[in-house]
Nucleic acid binder design. Structure first.
Lengths: 214, 214
DNA sequence: CCAGTTCGTCAACATCGTTGACAAACAGCG
DNA sequence: CGCTGTTTGTCAACGATGTTGACGAACTGG
């Protein structure tokens, strides 16, 4: 019944993923996606309520390459670490997209699979249900949150990015020594290294706290 | 020399803050701000390079009410906690705005004052420069990051927000028990309580980790 | 073969940030 | 006083965004 559909949610998401992979998420617009699919932009609204709905679907798709299968002989702490690092990597692989999706859990397939994996490791680590959920919230808050704020920088070309970090350091180093003595004193250490290193540092801190609390 | 300026960065920021406070940050546009100031929208470009520049200035202004003066007889851990909780509160007071600013440090007055205060407490806690900066990065990553992802929810009315959380719980509870046993088992605990509580929980975890590492 | 339904097309709307040409309003100088 | 140069706000326009409503093509069930 009705005209046969040439489009579908799957085809659209597939094309969107290809477009984002090729041109970057900032070029994912209703019009460009329509062009890529060879159809009118407005046709997309037959399959998605609005762009946010589309973004969620595309965002979840990118979580598919997080390694969530349990590794043998891996302790819970290492497993939790691996999961969070993997989630962050997947989010930052499409930085601009992550910034659009991070607002709320999509509660779609790939994200649910990740949630299941993380919570299972925490239960395996000896946390009871309420404590495991608390730990889950903390880890997600840090992992997704830091990905959200690092997304903009991750979108830059490596050269531009380190140039930007350098500029920040210079700004801090040029501060008035009377007013900001501490910042000035540590200016050379600020925003050195990569954002990934800073994240893993924070993650290890939190994991240490988790071990201590357990 | 030249035509006398009726506008200034200060006047513009002031009007922008008023506009954001009244209508919400989503209504902060070049045009609406021009209306509020009784001038042509394009006049703003004489004082700000682009909207992002403007957003940074407005965002920094909202950090002015973070309590950064040292409290007597307060340990470094309590002080660090207070600073981070205060920063988050200030960011979430204008949620939509926080989402626009979180990308990079503004390196403007209020933010610098906060950075100075936080680093000073860490130094006071016995951390040497590199370790203090590492701790600073971790705390900022968590605090600003979690504020970024909580911003969207914080923008909702309290009733809508708890309704949304309830819907998430129901979604998790309705999952297939075969495929997602762990998530389903802890579904009633997920996203209970407030986002503030979850943040403070994560913060305490990180502080515990910091104490252990020191 | 007609009626009903689905789905892509088309044109339009409102809104956004941003730019370049122009004119008003001043300071300094001969 | 008048000219020059500079600053600064105005105006009109551009291109891009998401979104909607009317239309017609293409199918299915009766």
């Amino acid at each position: 019944m009705g005209r046969p559909a040439t489009l579908s949610r799957e085809r659209i998401v597939e094309a969107a993923v290809a477009l984002v992979t090729r041109d970057g998420a900032e070029h994912l617009t209703v019009r460009s996606l329509g062009d890529a699919l060879g159809c009118d932009p407005s046709a997309l609204y037959r399959h998605f309520r609005n762009v946010e709905d589309l973004h969620r679907a595309v965002g979840d798709h990118f979580l598919s390459d997080v390694d969530i299968v349990p590794h043998p002989r891996e302790g819970w702490r290492a497993a939790v670490r691996r999961l969070c690092v993997g989630l962050r990597a997947a989010q930052l692989r499409q930085p601009r997209l992550a910034a659009l999706v991070h607002a709320a859990p999509t509660r779609l397939g790939n994200e649910l699979a990740f949630t299941e994996a993380l919570l299972r490791e925490l239960r395996r680590g000896g946390f009871r249900a309420p404590a495991a959920v608390k730990a889950y919230h903390s880890l997600i808050e840090l992992t997704v949150g830091s990905a959200a704020i690092d997304a903009a920088m991750a979108a830059l070309a490596p050269d531009d990015r380190s140039a930007e970090y350098r500029r920040w350091r210079e700004d801090y180093a040029a501060l008035d020594a009377q007013q900001f003595p501490t910042v000035r004193g540590v200016a050379t250490h600020l925003y050195r290294g990569t954002a990934d290193e800073r994240f893993e540092d924070a993650l290890d801190l939190m994991l240490t706290g988790l071990v201590a609390r357990r």
